[in-house]
Design a protein around this nucleic acid. Structure first.
Lengths: 241, 241
DNA sequence: CCGACCAATTTGGTCGGACCAAATAGTACT
DNA sequence: AGTACTATTTGGTCCGACCAAATTGGTCGG
């Protein structure tokens, strides 16, 4: 499950998940480095490297005398990915909040990109939208094109803050949903309308329109995703019986 | 300048700033741990803890054989704070992007909070807005109240994703601007209008109105901040002569 | 002259033991 | 019971050592 094969990373992941699972109360003393070293059968150095990562994530605060656990919602954004894949099924509330937040950022990006694009970039965007329209039969199969489109949008909009946020958010999310077999079922007509709105907004250089289209798309995605997760949850319950 | 008194943190800060200042090209080899230890006159262990923090920030990628520098805009959001206080004067473009992004998130928060607030919370919000109105003479002096208001909004909206983003963004920003003596001069009439719009939106339970008010406020803040930074820049140039 | 292959070196990853200073816990004293 | 003091725990740092992977540099063959 864990990726980076180094011991210190494994320890960090393990402890991170324990904290995210609320197995420690906020403010509680964290086990000592020597205890952790014994528990993981590793050297203190490896444990210290792991703890230094947790500290960077804002999950613990270390001091001579003992480390203390910090409340999860005072942590860094980088914990969101791990937070989403804690359990078999991602927390639906969190997923919804993710989509809502990512939606407004995507809308902002679309607005700025369409408004700021030069002639060449507009042509490029038009091409991409045409490609998207061709594949609009299935939300999943158009993923690669869709990502490319968003990437170009983001490059044109050129907002480092949004890009940094996206780095911590986007990466794992879609992949994980697919891996879990959660497929939001957005109506084909909705997708077609969305893409056609994108096309119009690009043709008319209308950033506000692009933004609005993006927003409604994410709204539809939210409800579809919510249903998809609910469906998956009942599947799992059935399996358990 | 640097906060945490431990050597490993000082090394991490130092190297972080060097990377953020683009003193290494993306993909370039990073100095070896042994070299860094010699340069900082520290042990390899301390250097390794520092590097493990940089890796968590997404600034470097380590591998047996050598660590490599990663491009800044593939880093974690947590680098934004340091990025803003790299130089005497924060990068105006970055500040503007920050305000634009934070603005849409604040608008989202306001919308959801006003829509979701129960009777008690609405009363609480009304009180806070009244307090804000009383102090609306000066943007700076109303900061404590303003922060409290945003905090309550954020608690009512209860969106963990936005909160995590804010953790990495908000904290240092306002403080740093004040410390540098950068005071955006938003017209008093604009502030008054903003607050009155907030009041109305709360009274009418109209989240969309609150969102729109927040958006225009941040728009005004952006232009004011841009002017303020420009002013400060010319001041500094004058001092240098 | 160039490319492929192989050995020497560099580099990160880990370990163990050791010392210091700060913070905590425990104890004795008032 | 409250306080002052001491012993212990804990994090922070250093050193030296070993392994395995990656890089480097040279050699050989075309």
């Amino acid at each position: 499950m864990s990726s980076s094969n180094t011991i210190s990373h494994e320890i960090a992941e393990s402890l991170r998940d324990e904290i995210l699972r609320q197995q420690y109360r906020s403010g509680e003393r964290f086990p000592s480095e020597r205890d952790l070293a014994a528990r993981f059968d590793a050297s203190r150095g490896a444990v210290r490297e792991a703890l230094s990562q947790l500290e960077q994530l804002g999950l613990i605060r270390t001091q001579p005398g003992g480390a203390r656990v910090q409340s999860v919602d005072s942590a860094s954004l980088a914990v969101l990915g791990p937070l989403l894949q804690l359990d078999d099924l991602p927390n639906p509330v969190l997923v919804d909040q993710f989509l809502e937040t990512f939606g407004v950022l995507a809308a902002l990006t679309a607005k700025n990109a369409v408004n700021a694009a030069n002639a060449d970039q507009l042509i490029q965007l038009k091409k991409l939208v045409v490609l998207l329209a061709d594949e609009s039969v299935d939300l999943e199969s158009m993923q690669p094109r869709w990502r490319e489109f968003m990437k170009i949008l983001s490059e044109i909009a050129d907002n480092l803050v949004v890009r940094l946020i996206s780095n911590d958010l986007k990466a794992q999310f879609v992949d994980q949903m697919m891996r879990l077999g959660i497929r939001p079922d957005v109506k084909r007509s909705s997708i077609k309308r969305f893409i056609s709105l994108l096309r119009v907004s690009i043709n008319k250089n209308d950033g506000e329109l692009a933004s609005a289209a993006m927003l409604t798309h994410f709204e539809e995605l939210r409800t579809a995703m919510s249903e998809a997760i609910g469906l998956k949850a009942s599947e799992i319950r059935k399996m358990a019986v």
